[in-house]
Every structure is written in structure tokens, then in C-alpha cells.
Amino acid sequence: MCIAVPAKVLSIDKNNAVVCFEGVKTNANVELVGDLKTGDYILLHAGCAIQKINEVEAKKTLEVFKQMLEQD
């Protein structure tokens, strides 16, 4: 029900950040996520960052995908 894309944080100025999703930069409100730094990835929905993307978890999921598919 909700289009959201993973975007990389390029710079932060108080409540706003410049974020980039694969060649498209935009300003995003980042008040809804805490503890953000340049280089982090966020989930962008309707002009706002709604969650920080957890790289460790992303890798884990990919690993799970791969492992599960190797076994029967």
C-alpha cells in the first residue's frame, strides 16, 4: 500500500537531509528516524525517511534466502 525506496543519506541539516536513490536526489524530512549519519540508508516514503535500513539485517536476509534455497 505504500511506495517506499531505499535512499542513501548524502548530507544532513537538522531535520532535513539530502538523500539519493540510484541517481535521483531529493530532500527528505528525517525527523522520524533518530541517530542518522551521512552514508546511512533510509526508507523514503512520501518525502520522509520512515526507517533506517539495517545493513547487517539486509545481509542476513540475503544469506537466509541463499541458504534456504540450497537445502531441500
Binding site: 511506495i3 525506496v5 536513490f21 540510484e22 541517481g23 535521483v24 531529493t26 523514503l44
Partner: peptide
Amino acid sequence: VRSNVKSMCKMIG
């Protein structure tokens, strides 16, 4: 499709 075109399409559906 260029990647920036693809990305922008994805962002706004």
C-alpha cells in the same frame, strides 16, 4: 532504461 529514469519512476510509482 537508464537507471536514473528507472529510479524516479520507482519513487513515484
